[in-house]
Amino acid sequence: MAKFFNSLRDGVGFDLILVGAAMVFLLALAGLPLVYNVLMSFQQVDMFTLGQLIRPFAGISNYVAVVQQPEFWMVTRNTLVFVVGSMAGQFVLGFALAVFFAQKFPGAATIRGLFLVSWVMPGLVVGAIWSWILAGDFGVLNSILRGLGIIQSNIFWKSDPSFSIWAVIIANIWLGLAFNMLLLSVGLAAIPRDLYEAAELDGANAWQRFWTITLPMMRSTIGAVLSLGLIGTLQQFDLFPALTEGGPANTSNVAGYWSWQLSFQLYDFAKGATVSVMMFVLVLFASILYVRSTRHEVRG
């Protein structure tokens, strides 16, 4: 063990400074808020104790109170729909685009590059754009759907309780699509061409090549994309204030936005912290999956 640590040292301490700087940064900006947040979820917090670190201990009463909130199950269900819907859309469409752009045609790389525009745009801007696209009375989406004869009357995407969560999901799919496509493209490019040629000679058609070569060879990439997608989707915030503000009647509210509402609109910091701790456990789980998936890289 000592030998292992010695192999990491340069002998003059510069290495310690480098590691130390990174550790201080991490502890100050990620560790402390995290610990403070967890601490707060076990305390009674009100406007009078807001400035104190040590507050009355509340046990798990905050957790019980959060679960007993009338909107808790609605928000849980919405979060689930939002995460699964967004990830499925981002992944399937992203994979399809990645495969599409992996074909050699003129301008493939350039057009793929243009897709990244959606990824560099701030969520609030994306939210504003989609707010116009999804607008009930003058939105372009309704007008297209009507034109194609798919719907007869306008859908009020943002204010109809049965569509509001889908309005945010559609915008979020668009927002995360390019990121998914990019990571999956890298994974696709890493598969040697001659594997496909060998499979082709072995009698595999395009569909069989996809199932027996592409998918298994992409295992670790897919794991990474899905884990990062889960984390990114749970953290999504900007689209909610821009599109629905969680409404109407919490029908498009998800855990992340709810936690912000509890803390900064209702000033119930304890409950807000509790919800975010619950989410943190979920994200932690996803992170472990991600780390494990990158460890199982297939190497030729």
């Binding site: 040697p192 001659d194 594997l195 040629e197 060998a198 499979a199 082709e200 000679l201 072995d202 009698g203 595999a204 058609n205 027996t212 070569i213 298994p216 060879m217 295992r219 297939v298 190497r299 030729g300």
Partner: peptide, 20 residues
């Protein structure tokens, strides 16, 4: 005729074994 219908087998320089 596409490769999969030609009934010929090829041994590649890189072997092209399926790593998984």
């Amino acid at each position: 005729v596409p490769p999969r219908k030609r009934d010929v087998a090829m041994v590649f320089q890189s072997y092209a074994l399926y790593p998984h």
